[in-house]
Computed example of a mutant assay.
Amino acid sequence: MNGTALTGGDPTLLRRLNTEAVLRVLRTPHPMTLTQIGKAAGLSRQTVDVVIDELAEGGWIEEVAPEKTVGRPARRYRFRAEGRHVLGIDIGVTGASYALADLDGTVLASSRVETPADGTAGDRLEAVRLGGASLLADRPDVRLGGLALGVPAIVDAHGLIRLSTPLPEWNGLDLAAEASTWFDCPAHVENDANLAALAEHWRGAARDSTDFIQLIAGRRSGAGMMLGGRLHRGRGGAAGEIGALDVLGWESEAIDAIRNAPDPAALLADARTGDKAAAGRVDRYARVVAQGLAAMILTVNPDLVVIGGGLSRAGEAVTGPIRTHLDRICLDPPEVVASELGTEAVSLGAVRLALEHLNARLFGSHSTSSGGLLPSPVPPGAAGTGALGPRPCAEVPR
């Protein structure tokens, strides 16, 4: 048989690899028979029987009703994406948004809470925690396997906030360590623009792009990059912080005239319908934004710029002027498009990040951030905790 089943060597490793092969095959929307699983995974029927029994016992898969057929129907199985969940949190200056998802990344519930504008660092932390606890309290069936938080900050590789201008009281805060105590599961922290890029690459406007720049355009500006299909964070997590250059004017009056307008959407709409004053303000805004983007574009030569954040809902009214200015100042201007995910991009990117870390912890490998479904995590009982590291934070329901 020309398959992938292995013999000899460390039995724990072989068991894990065989379980991995079965789980990969079962990550489809359609139930499969034992014969189909064995053929697709390249495993013998005997090996598949053993793996299936272990996965079913652990609650990772379940047998489904047989198809109507003549004779004895073949047993069919499906992967239980609802067997574990992740929580993505987008933390801003005025509030936090939440997305609860299953192992397929399907968002099952979402919510938003306001956070104290003049409270202490602890007050904001507690408000964010309570918002998550409230969402989870409404879903007693949830078994949380991890969470990720997006913040407007430079974040190091361990989840410590190195610098946040919008949230200065959190500078130096080990947010990952703090959040890991909330719901008895690991927490991961990333810059919000980076998470927006991750989401757009996964399910948004950058699905077919491997090199692109993500701009958050709203009450604040921020940028992230994905190069070669992976987030580019830089040495200390500060890649994309082009707004730190005062000479570019990302904190200038031209920017504030749009993002602090009483109704930015109405202003953009007026500009599109020929209002000269509104068009002038939008053009000045687009020129300043384009100057910052151009500094990044001329360095990495991406094929796409995605405009996200609240202003992305204006579509061509905001992307058009930015595109015009980039065409004038870039040697090889990329395509400029509006986000397909809007203000949900950061929380969805946090979901994706939490899934990747859960996958790495349980499955023993990292996702390539290719935009497809994540490989299924291997349940701890399938290979022993020695091969897979520590046990997950919540048991799969049996």
Rank of each mutant, 00 (worst) to 15 (best):
P390G: 01
P73G: 08
G389V: 06
A338L: 11
G389Q: 06
V50R: 15
A40M: 08
L160V: 15
W182I: 05
L175D: 02
I91P: 05
V113Q: 03
A199F: 05
V25I: 02
A193S: 12
T120F: 02
S134F: 02
I91E: 00
R219I: 08
P262H: 03
D53T: 13
P390I: 01
D211M: 01
P11H: 09
R230C: 03
A387S: 14
S347A: 15
H325N: 06
R235G: 15
L149S: 04
R398S: 09
S365F: 14
E253F: 08
G131N: 02
G349Q: 03
S252R: 05
E169W: 04
G172E: 10
Q46A: 12
P29S: 09
L298K: 04
S164G: 10
G386K: 03
I242D: 01
R72G: 03
A74W: 10
S376R: 13
S221K: 09
M296K: 00
P321T: 05
R352Q: 14
I255W: 05
L355E: 09
S111C: 03
N171F: 15
G8N: 11
T106Y: 11
A206G: 04
P377F: 11
A176C: 08
G292H: 07
I213L: 13
V86R: 03
V93C: 04
G59T: 06
A271R: 02
I216A: 03
E57T: 13
S252M: 05
G218S: 06
E340C: 14
T115K: 01
A350G: 09
R230N: 07
V128R: 01
P73N: 07
G274F: 00
K68I: 14
N359A: 13
R15E: 13
E241G: 10
V93W: 11
Q214L: 12
